[in-house]
């Protein structure tokens, strides 16, 4: 039921996730940030079994920090993604597998290129231009298939993510009240929070940059 979307441009990645923590049919929390900032240009968004999500993502976060300290440089996106996948694969074949689905997106300051990795709970990994997990993917993929272009600008990518969210709100049985969106580019990580608006009687979302209050809307 959780929402997780990623869109990669040439030199940026947009990650979006919902903020709900649910237990059975009850919403326990409405403002959970489901992303971890692995270092200054890589972000990991995680969904799945609540306990697994916390312990797995904290373990990954700490180790990636440690590797960065040892090597005296931040790890690249592919290094983060492949180490995470390896750890997940090892756990999968042990007595204590983790039930988590991940998107890892980041920007490489040396090559000036961005990349997006999709990893699922069976630890398959692939580098993709756009990605989603769970029920959400049925709605998001059709829109992204139609609208994705290689030369998407940052604003267009955010707007595409907003359209996905709007479509979810419109068609998906389990609508979600709020989202967090992050853009990772050369300057670092930018965080946006969602703001519901009413548009001709239908709900949509604006995204507000947390740092400077700049609003991005679909239009």
């Amino acid at each position: 039921m959780e929402t997780q979307i990623g869109i990669r441009g040439d030199n940026f990645v947009v990650l979006l996730s919902d903020k709900i923590v649910a237990q059975s049919i009850v919403k326990m929390k409405h403002n959970q940030d489901k992303m971890k900032q692995l270092n200054k240009n890589n972000v990991m968004s995680v969904t799945g079994e609540a306990g697994d999500v916390d312990s797995f993502s904290e373990y990954i976060e700490a180790n990636i920090k440690l590797f960065g300290l040892r090597q005296n440089r931040p790890l690249t996106t592919s290094e983060c993604a492949y180490w995470t996948r390896g750890t997940l694969a090892e756990a999968l074949r042990s007595r204590s597998p983790y039930n988590v689905n991940l998107l890892i997106g980041g920007f490489n300051p040396n090559t000036k290129k961005s990349s997006l990795y999709r990893i699922d709970y069976l630890s398959s990994i692939c580098e993709v231009p756009f990605a989603a997990h769970g029920y959400t993917s049925y709605f998001a993929y059709s829109l992204m298939d139609k609208e994705y272009r290689k030369d998407l600008t940052k604003e267009e990518a955010i707007k595409l993510a907003i359209r996905c969210v709007k479509q979810l709100d419109h068609r998906f049985l389990v609508g979600q009240p709020g989202f967090i969106l992050r853009v990772i580019d050369e300057e670092g990580i930018h965080t946006y929070d969602s703001q519901p608006i009413l548009e001709n009687g239908q709900r949509s979302f604006n995204f507000v940059n947390v740092a400077n209050n700049v609003v991005v809307s679909e239009a």
């Binding site: 904290e58 700490a62 300290l69």
Partner: peptide, 15 residues
């Protein structure tokens, strides 16, 4: 290296 490991495991265990 020992100190780095301790620092990160402190963060992981105690947040």
């Amino acid at each position: 290296n020992e100190a780095r490991l301790e620092a990160q495991s402190h963060r992981l265990n105690l947040d």
